[in-house]
């Protein structure tokens, strides 16, 4: 019986991570930037779960669980910072955040 190799999941994880990385490099809206970071975290989770299934060991699931907790904390604080940035300079363009340069 033919079934899926783990490599397919790993390749998918790499593709998703790349999409997230391209998003962080290319987009300028701060909220969309955060969404792309979430995509990268999810790609890492997928790799964790795939390896965990390959080894028949639930340790990878627990790592993914921790990643989700970190992502929740990161989203909370990051969005608070974004709200503050928006109040400060009336926009979400990350190119406009050059206060420290002057």
């Amino acid at each position: 019986m033919m079934t899926i190799p783990v490599g397919w999941y790993l390749a998918l994880s790499a593709v998703l991570f790349t999409i997230g990385a391209v998003g962080v490099l290319v987009r300028r809206n701060a909220i969309v930037l955060f969404m792309c970071v979430e995509i990268m975290l999810n790609a890492a989770n997928l790799a964790f779960v795939a390896f965990s299934r390959a080894h028949n060991d639930t340790g990878g699931h627990l790592f993914a669980f921790m990643v989700i907790a970190v992502a929740a904390a990161e989203a909370g604080i990051g969005l608070a910072i974004i709200v503050n940035v928006f109040r400060h300079n009336r926009g979400l363009e990350v190119d406009g955040l050059n206060l420290m340069r002057h």
Partner: peptide, 17 residues
């Protein structure tokens, strides 16, 4: 780089069923 390093791991060929 990511895909080649992960596909080079020892379990990458493991078939899941």
């Amino acid at each position: 780089v990511l895909a080649s390093s992960m596909l080079g791991s020892s379990v990458a060929g493991t078939r899941l069923w």
